[in-house]
Simulated assay, not measured.
Amino acid sequence: MRPAELDRVTVAEAADRYVELVRARTVTGALSPASAEVYARDVATLVELAGADVVLDDLTGADVDAILLAFARRPDGRTARARDGRAGAGGGAQAGAGQSPSSQARFRRSISALFKHATLAGWVQINPMTRSTVTARQRGGLRAERRALTREQAQGLIGAARELREAPPEHGKRRDQRTELRDAVIVLLLATVGPRVSELVRANVEDFFTNDGVRYWRIFGKGGRTRDVPLPGDVARVLQAYLEQEREPRRESDPRDGRDDGKALLLSWRGRRLARGDVQAVIDRVQRRVDPDRRRSVTPHGLRHTTATHLLADAVDMDAVRRVLGHSDLSTLGRYRDELPGELEVAMRSHPLLRDRPAP
């Protein structure tokens, strides 16, 4: 039950009150005008990303994750202007991808300060920043924490990927521009087989073969090691549908411009091999189809953690899990085994020493 003194202000109202307070501090010299304007700009961005009419107290840690990652992926206007200037002078600088790590860290500090004030002012019961799983990296910007999804979250994501097989085409897209089956294959392979993202984007169609009725993926991993991993039946069926309905028509109809992407498993709608950076966008797109109560931001490596965690939690042989993930020894599995809510309680309820007790 909410306390009587809780002030259910919207994000826009809270932002206006906070910015007014910040600017007032410049009068006393506690804050420079330039710093106050930086805070105001970041808070305005928060309003844009969170939604002006959303009640501030309704924001959860998952919402903060989405806001931080959405900001991180926004184009950096300063980088674009600098690039355009170099291009005009004959330079060929490559486009920057999203905000710089320093800008991401600054934005995080700005909204952290707002939520800290909101907690003291009675605008929120719990500071949602304390529930965020996005961590700050000194040289890598903001990233979703590489930890496993819970069973409910993983099943929600897998369910959304399965439904893509029957999804209607997006408005305005031609048949050869559809990517629903490809997106489903990406999420299902990451969540059930747990490959490294580099192994996934390097995969070729010829790496998948059938033996005795079972579909296998020959994965080329680190150190020149290969492993043959059997695919779950559902995953194999979606893969086959993608190969027949999306990939082959696209490969035949789109020009290569001299590039040899014809063998690649995962192609863009233009017929190019997908890059590592494209995979996160696919996961985020599928996540938007998941019920909000079962949704949590996750990276490709987080899905690798998810595979390891749930296979081990289900008492799958450790050496079999090691071979699925492509590790050289069992000790490495410790880094991929995350705790799950309630798993200790389940383990103690089914304690092996208390099974088949003799009748009293």
Results as ranks from 00 to 15, higher is better:
D7H: 03
V9D: 08
E13G: 15
R17C: 13
Y18A: 00
E20M: 10
T26S: 00
S32W: 12
S35K: 03
Y39S: 00
Y39C: 00
A40K: 08
T45N: 03
G51A: 14
G51L: 15
D53T: 12
L56W: 01
L56H: 14
I67Y: 08
L68P: 03
L69H: 09
A70Y: 13
A70W: 09
T79E: 15
T79V: 15
T79S: 15
A80T: 08
D84T: 04
R86S: 11
G88T: 10
Q94W: 15
G96M: 02
G96C: 02
S100A: 12
P101V: 04
F107W: 07
R108W: 10
R109Y: 06
S110K: 14
I111P: 06
S112R: 06
F115M: 14
H117F: 06
A118L: 05
A118E: 05
G122D: 04
W123N: 09
Q125T: 10
I126R: 15
P128A: 06
P128T: 07
T133P: 09
A136C: 05
R137T: 09
Q138L: 13
R139Y: 07
A144K: 15
R147T: 14
R147Q: 15
R151A: 09
G156R: 02
G159K: 09
A161K: 06
R162F: 09
E163V: 04
P168W: 04
P168Q: 08
P168R: 08
R174H: 00
T179S: 12
T179D: 12
V185A: 03
V187Y: 08
L200T: 08
N204P: 04
N204Y: 07
E206Y: 04
D207T: 01
T210C: 00
N211E: 08
R215E: 04
Y216R: 07
W217V: 02
F220A: 07
G223R: 12
D228N: 01
L231G: 01
A236P: 05
A236T: 13
R237I: 02
V238K: 06
L239Q: 00
L239Y: 05
Q245I: 10
Q245R: 13
Q245P: 02
R247S: 03
P249D: 03
R250N: 06
R250V: 13
D254T: 09
R256N: 04
G258W: 00
D261S: 06
G262C: 02
K263S: 13
A264I: 11
R270Q: 06
A275P: 01
R276S: 11
Q280M: 14
A281K: 13
I283S: 04
Q287S: 15
Q287D: 15
R288E: 09
V290K: 04
P292I: 01
R295M: 10
R296C: 02
H301N: 07
L303A: 11
R304H: 03
H305S: 12
T306Y: 02
A308G: 10
T309Y: 00
L312Q: 10
V316W: 06
V316P: 13
D317S: 08
L325I: 02
S328I: 12
T332F: 05
L333M: 15
L333E: 12
G334Y: 00
R335E: 07
P341A: 00
E343L: 11
L344H: 13
E345S: 11
L353W: 12
L353K: 06
L353T: 01
L354M: 09
P360E: 14
P360C: 10
P360D: 14
